[in-house]
């Protein structure tokens, strides 16, 4: 009896202690919702905190297929935003939020050296530190000269049962397929995915799963992101990558996107954080990290394993148009791929 009473009292005390978890809005601080992978983004945030003396409250995201993510949180909090800055690692989320009036306009002076293709004409987002969508293949099973060079090669019957892609409804793959539909057209893409389906394509729950399957030899080829492949390369796994369609429609480039949140609690600190994140220093750091992200500022050295942004043909892409196709493309692929 006494033990139960004591436990109950301790429980209530804990409850009181929990109340002390809130942010003190009077001191210098800024809150960022970050959908970029935590191992890469957390050090960047900590460095800003160290340099500026501003407390940075960060909420990290999870893999798209494991939970709903920060975009939905931002939408749900729209009436009373908690976040000041949103850092997304792919365009679709940001553009959906822009369309739902969750973001605010801010043209950062730090974006000067970044090409106009990677900035919103209306000023709601700025791109930086990009990844690419690539074809990954198993080097024990495929010689470099035999590796597919185009996304469309994956529909070839010689790859039957050997192709893995992440679920095209989510994450960077959804961006990739929406971009393809926007650039190439519905008829050709419907045909392509129909052939993939006939080829017994394996649809798995994430880009890292694609990478792991190819590394293990469960699939010979797959579509994934550059940073996923780099993890396998660093681990000396038998994989290599191809930048697809460099002579055709171009390589899909996925910049990180930075935005100010509309009606943010700390707008001034938010702008300073955006300025920092768009700086060449940050791009340099992300290029050197396991993220192997390609700087979009001219003249900033990129990762050693990857070409610089000006040395290959990127896909000519209106990011807003690609993002607007997501809902329709999702419905199409659900039908074609039987998702």
């Amino acid at each position: 009896m006494i033990g139960a009473t004591r436990a109950f009292g301790i429980g209530l005390a804990f409850a009181a202690v929990c109340g002390c978890g809130g942010a003190d809005r009077a001191s210098r601080e800024v809150t960022a919702y970050v959908s970029a992978d935590r191992p890469f983004s957390e050090p960047v945030m900590k460095e800003y905190e160290r340099r500026s003396g501003v407390r940075v409250n960060v909420v990290f995201d999870t893999e798209e297929t494991k939970s709903t993510g920060l975009a939905n949180r931002l939408l749900a909090e729209k009436a009373r935003p908690q976040a000041d800055v949103f850092w997304s690692n792919e365009p679709v989320r940001t553009l959906v939020l822009k369309s739902r009036d969750v973001l605010a306009v801010y043209r950062s002076p730090a974006s000067e050296g970044i090409a106009g293709t990677f900035k919103d004409p209306e000023g709601y987002w700025t791109g930086f530190s990009a990844r690419m969508r690539v074809i990954v293949y198993n080097t024990n099973q495929i010689k470099p000269e035999d590796a597919p060079q185009s996304v469309f090669d994956l529909a070839d019957s010689r790859w039957k049962g050997q192709v893995a892609i992440a679920d095209p409804r989510f994450g960077s793959t959804s961006f990739h397929v929406a971009a393809l539909y926007a650039v190439v057209g519905d008829a050709r893409m419907d045909e392509f995915f129909g052939k993939l389906k006939a080829n017994d394509v394996k649809v798995v729950d994430g880009n890292s799963v694609v990478r792991d399957m190819v590394a293990r030899g469960e699939a010979s080829v797959g579509l994934t992101d550059t940073d996923d492949v780099n993890v396998a390369l660093e681990a000396k796994q038998p994989v290599a990558m191809v930048l697809p369609d460099r002579d055709g429609i171009g390589v899909p480039v996925m910049p990180n996107m930075l935005s100010l949140v509309a009606n943010a609690p700390h707008p001034d600190e938010a702008k300073k954080l955006v300025d920092y994140l768009l700086s060449a220093d940050v791009e340099r750091a992300l290029a050197a990290s396991e993220a192997v992200q390609i700087p979009l500022h001219a003249g900033v050295a990129g990762p050693r394993n990857l070409p610089a942004i000006g040395t290959f043909k990127p896909m000519t892409l209106d990011y807003a148009k690609a993002a607007s196709r997501v809902a329709d493309v999702t419905a199409r692929l659900q039908r074609i791929l039987g998702l």
């Binding site: 942010a23 809150t31 960022a32 999870t62 908690q82 890292s208 792991d212 993890v231 681990a235």
Partner: peptide
């Protein structure tokens, strides 16, 4: 809230790009 990630959330934020 920011800075408060219980273990299960902590795990999911780490494994997004983590090796198996």
């Amino acid at each position: 809230p920011p800075g408060h990630a219980p273990y299960s959330i902590h795990v999911l934020t780490l494994i997004a790009n983590a090796p198996s």
